[in-house]
Amino acid sequence: MTLLAFLSIELGPARRSLLARYVLAHGPHDEDRAVVSPPAPPDARHWLGTDVQRRDLLSRLLHGARISMQVGLGAEAIALALGVAVGALAGYRGGWVDAILMRVADVLLSLPLPILAMAAIAMFDTRSIVLIFVVLGLMGWAGIARLVRAQCMSVRSRGYPEAARALGAGGLRLIARHLLPAAFAPALVAATVGVAMNILTEAWLSFIGLGVQSHSVSWGRMIVDGQPELTVRPWLCVFPGIALAVTVMGFVLLADGLRDALDPKTRMATHTTSS
């Protein structure tokens, strides 16, 4: 749902949709001066109500998806690139290169990502979205690296990479054509879960005041702004909470589906059962 909403904002043709017309009618920063006593509860005019500044909550929720997606996908892209590169190098070279890279990964894995991110972000005076996803990306590659390394080492011990080497394949070709394809599926599944974790971490950082700075709409910030009024104005906090939960669960289910689709054993089992 959230992804669709996100796309409807980002893509031109979708602007003709009902949702997009609604979003265009109420910008995330636009005030509805007709609201007499803000925050207004959900009604026909504001489907999810307004916040205390008389801004439409649904519009802010949809625009907040943008931050969550940018952080989730951006950070994971960095983590994936780093993780695959480090894991492939460690798995292919082995020896001291492997030892050093994996000890670095172990150190990162031994520290909780949110705490690490919090410490890194707190060092900067201003907090932009780029800073947040770069920090999350730089901190989140170790799991993927370990996975890719294990896959590479497993494949390396089989015969065909040796055969390719005997036929004159260089190191890069060996990694790109023979080792990485085997690691692709698990890395993609791990990265998909990673997107969900990044979205959660961004929300958590916003919750404790270390997320994107004011005037950027973020679900975490919406939750923290609405949380003190949960018992009296639940719409302020519950809707962004639901959006966050649904999105995170969506990515987890997507990862589950990807694993089923990309795992040859599962595919084979499904095929055997259906036939």
């Binding site: 920063h29 005030e31 500044q53 005076d125 201003t126 004011s214 005037h215 923290v224 702004d225 003190p228």
Partner: peptide, 24 residues
């Protein structure tokens, strides 16, 4: 949280006369 609300208000009010705030 309280001052963030004030900041949102100022951003909106001053934005109405063309003054852009760069909040720190």
């Amino acid at each position: 949280q309280g001052f963030r609300r004030i900041l949102d208000r100022l951003t909106s009010d001053l934005g109405a006369i063309g003054v852009k705030l760069n909040a720190r």
